[in-house]
Simulated assay, not measured.
Amino acid sequence: MSQLTQPLRDEHKELLPHIERLRAVADAVGSTPLPSLRQEIDETSAFLSHQLLPHAQAEERALYPVVGRLMGAPEATATMSRDHVEIGRLTEELGALRSSLKNDHLDTSEVQALRRVLYGLSALVTAHFAKEEEVYLPLLDTRLSREEARDLFEAMERAAQEEKRAIR
């Protein structure tokens, strides 16, 4: 029997290689030629801004209210929402650090800052996905009807598309 939350599990599976890439890019900072690093950072920033953050906003607008209702406590998702705030903050910090990549070389503090932000994003998003899949999705699988699940994922898709249109 397939799980009602399979669409979200599939979406996480699609996003995961990009999340794993954050760690690989962090590993490469300081040893990869700067033109290649610039391209990696640009692609990483684009992924965060155009895919991951809209996904997070869709969760905020559609998923977390349902989870809160099912748990009988709207504040039950507050720590997950805080993860989203920190992901947004680190994404903005990465964007600011991109400007330092215009120089001919990176100094030690720039290398450290890039690694810190990229490793931080990697760890935070990986843990965030695990919490959703281990705690929230089993709850939804057992308590939602098929119709409610369908409505939830349609609402998430609409919210993600609205966020993507807003950033263009």
Rank of each mutant, 00 (worst) to 15 (best):
S2Q: 11
Q3K: 05
T5E: 07
L8N: 07
R9L: 02
K13V: 10
E14D: 06
H18N: 10
I19N: 06
E20P: 12
R21N: 15
L22H: 02
V25L: 08
V29S: 00
G30N: 02
S31V: 14
S31E: 15
L37E: 00
R38I: 08
S45W: 07
F47K: 11
F47Y: 13
P54A: 01
H55T: 00
H55D: 02
A56F: 09
A56L: 11
Q57F: 06
A58P: 05
L70G: 06
M71L: 15
A73R: 06
P74L: 10
E75D: 11
A76F: 03
A76P: 14
A76E: 13
A78S: 09
A78K: 08
A78G: 10
T79P: 14
M80S: 13
D83M: 01
H84A: 05
V85H: 09
I87A: 05
E92P: 06
E92N: 12
E93N: 13
S99V: 12
S100C: 08
D104R: 06
L106C: 13
T108F: 01
S109C: 11
E110L: 11
L114P: 02
R115I: 05
R115G: 09
R116E: 13
V117W: 00
G120V: 00
A123M: 13
E132P: 07
E133A: 14
V135H: 06
L137E: 01
L140G: 09
D141Y: 11
D141G: 10
T142I: 13
L144K: 01
R146D: 15
E147Q: 07
E148R: 11
E148C: 15
E148F: 12
R150Y: 05
R150E: 12
L152S: 03
R158F: 06
Q161W: 07
E162D: 10
K164R: 13
R165F: 03
I167N: 01
